[in-house]
């Protein structure tokens, strides 16, 4: 018996928590999802030692693909240090013995809730999304039999009716999160509650993107270099959110910003939602308004 195997045998649970049979079942679902980009594959979701809403779908996907040589990053709303991100990171440190990181470039697997990192992902990286509601047509057509039929026949006119209603009511497409996309020109997909700002990052990304919905028992995928196109009208084209000001800390202008309340007198600032990106830029010498507006020397 090798040292590794001995350690394995002594562990009170299997490597990465899930038993091997469950992992194989989930991997089969993942492979099917990769083979049919954007198609929601049902899988037998397992109970995880954390409540639904804490990313049990994403955790099961990560647990099924992770190995000892992986380096894991976990973000929640762009941040590495929220309770949710920290506890999932610790969970895999403990159960899978993997190295963890906050650096996007150093990670082989990034599990995320609500954001895609600002730093472009590369080939070989896997982005695992935690998805609460995988069915983009759910609120338009509650009958599951009917939504399945709509996917099977690529009948997606109803999604445009929703966007039509938005423009009729607000003068523009008001949806800023969960913005529906067509994957590979075939399947309508819900990108999970990421801001639409991140939609263009999914398009032809060299990274593998996997989506896990635990409560809803669905896995879907966007393989590398797949077309991901946000729905729109010819005369109301898709646009990403724009921010008036740069990040107060690092001065970045082309990133997604969060509003931070500074005091109870209405003081506030806008800072990078992606904390790793912000820290990296500051380490490189970029300074935002709050830190004295400096640009690094060339």
């Amino acid at each position: 018996m090798s040292a590794n195997a001995a350690a394995e045998a002594a562990r009170p649970y299997n490597y990465a928590y899930l038993d091997e049979q469950t992992k194989r079942m989930i991997r089969r679902a993942i492979l099917k999802a990769i083979a049919i980009p954007g198609y929601q594959v049902p899988f037998a979701s397992r109970e995880m030692p954390m409540p639904y809403g804490w990313g049990t779908g994403g955790v099961q996907v990560t647990a099924s693909i992770i190995g000892p040589s992986d380096v894991l990053k976990v973000i929640d709303q762009g941040s590495d240090d929220t309770t949710n991100a920290v506890s999932i990171r610790k969970f895999f440190e403990k159960t899978a013995g993997v190295a963890v990181t906050t650096a996007t470039t150093a990670a082989s697997i990034i599990q995320t809730r609500h954001r895609i990192p600002e730093t472009p992902l590369g080939a070989g990286q896997v982005l695992v999304y935690q998805v609460p509601i995988p069915e983009p047509l759910r609120f338009l057509e509650p009958r599951e039999t009917e939504t399945r039929k709509m996917h099977a026949l690529a009948e997606y006119g109803l999604m445009h009716v929703k966007l039509y209603e938005d423009i009729a009511k607000h003068g523009r497409i008001a949806k800023t999160y969960d913005y529906p996309v067509m994957v590979g020109g075939r399947y309508l997909m819900d990108p999970s509650p990421t801001p639409k700002f991140d939609n263009p990052k999914m398009h032809r990304s060299p990274a593998l993107q996997l989506f896990g919905a635990g409560r809803e028992k669905r896995i879907y995928a966007v393989p590398p270099h797949t077309d991901v196109v946000s729905l729109d009208f010819d005369d109301h084209p898709f646009e990403v959110n724009k921010f008036d000001k740069p990040c107060a800390l690092c001065g970045a202008t082309d990133v997604y910003l969060d509003e931070v309340i500074l005091d109870d007198r209405g003081g506030r600032m806008f800072v990078c939602s992606d904390t790793d990106n912000c820290e990296t830029r500051r380490a490189d010498g970029h300074r935002g308004e709050l830190l004295g507006n400096e640009e690094p020397r060339a």
Partner: peptide, 18 residues
């Protein structure tokens, strides 16, 4: 909306101009 109800069939067959 009434407009959305009437427009649905058009969108279903591919109209993409609001």
């Amino acid at each position: 909306s009434a407009g959305g109800n009437v427009g649905e069939r058009l969108m279903a067959i591919g109209s993409r101009h609001y």
